[in-house]
Design a protein around this nucleic acid. Structure first.
Lengths: 217, 217
DNA sequence: ACCTGAACACCGTTCAAGT
DNA sequence: ACCTGAACACCGTTCAAGT
């Protein structure tokens, strides 16, 4: 292998499953998942679309890889953190990742999360709850609640009229017109449009943690 | 108009926006949203795909109509129901609709819910909370929590390994193999795979309602 | 072992042409 | 006013052919 070949390999990068997924994530972050196609992804990697199939089963395989990469980026708390703080950190850190990659939640909703990083993440959350003294049944309940809360808030954030007001620039006008038909929506619309999601999320998370804690004693 | 023409019109049905959305929902229920295309939907209605554009803006417009139809099918509680029961009923009834049409939650996640039926539904939930004595801020908090919980549990149900074990028929085997790497997942997998979602959902809903109630006094 | 061109069976959407 | 055929610019995926 000559020096030039070596340079080309290094700058263009060798085509691997990981590199494909990496570039797919960057592309989805910039242009949205719906714009992601095998042909465009190939072009981004300096290769024809068909070459991707040498490293990846199909497009769904890429989706699964993207999901697992994002879940894998959620930091895990130290083993000795008290469970309430560990859960709070896991929740807020998960939210942060999901917010940074808004396409991941809808994708998880249809594809699930069963990759190695997702299993590792899940195992850690279950460990925190079990070690805190919850029964297996309550650990299960708690996982479902916490996962639902995190996924649900991601949904709220994704479909927040404030966040997507490019599409709904006439929303406040519309709401004002419908004020007598939907008075409560009209009154609370400003709160919904410009709320701090981090604060909102933690408000609910604390209620859940308190509710779970009451079942421990 | 002759008798025969009248019959044909009645049996084939007149093409309208509502009828298109109705048939689209039935199609998505049977074959999944990802299989829904303008061409197939046209065929289902005995018409070419291009004709649909006379009654509908585009495919997204159909999606929005499908979402609003499903939300509109959630029954609203009587005005004088005590708020805890009203909220519980709204939550479980919403869950029931979302479960009956598994494609609706991922769709809402990307499209939001801003149709007339959705606004009506939202206004009613906000009214229940306001009338219960919550401040506007807490009403807002409560809406976000309840909506998140409902959406989140729909997600859990949709991606439940038990529900999709046609795709993951080897999941229990896989989990067993990884038992030493993910011990808690392995131990709780049966609970997750075969849990009663209705019961799970209400467990969490009660914790949320209790937590909100504590802010009322 | 990896990449490619051509092909297949699809998409959503537009638009001029029909009635 | 509503429906259609043909067309445009895309899709994911397969497969024989190249190196």
């Amino acid at each position: 292998m000559t020096y030039d070949e070596d340079m080309a390999t290094r700058t263009r990068g060798t085509l691997t499953r990981d590199r494909i997924i990496e570039v797919a994530i960057a592309f989805a972050d910039e242009h949205g998942v719906e714009a992601l196609s095998m042909r465009k992804l190939g072009a981004e990697l300096g290769v024809e679309a068909m070459s991707l199939y040498n490293h990846v089963d199909n497009k769904d395989d890429i989706y699964d890889g993207m999901i697992d990469f994002v879940v894998g980026a959620i930091p895990l708390p130290d083993e000795d953190t008290v469970w309430q703080n560990a859960i709070r950190a896991l929740g807020t850190d998960a939210m942060e990742q999901f917010s940074a990659h808004p396409w991941v939640a809808p994708l998880m909703m249809t594809r699930g999360m069963f990759g190695p990083a997702a299993l590792r993440f899940m195992d850690r959350v279950l460990a925190v709850l079990s070690n805190a003294g919850f029964t297996d049944e309550d650990t299960h309940h708690a996982w479902q609640m916490l996962a639902s809360h995190t996924m649900g808030y991601t949904f709220q954030q994704a479909t927040n009229p404030g966040a997507i007001d490019d599409k709904f620039d006439g929303l406040d006008v519309l709401v004002a017109q419908l004020a007598e038909e939907f008075p409560h929506v009209a009154r609370l619309a400003p709160l919904l449009a410009q709320c701090e999601f981090r604060h909102e999320f933690e408000f609910g998370l604390d209620i859940i943690i308190d509710g779970l804690e009451a079942r421990l004693n």
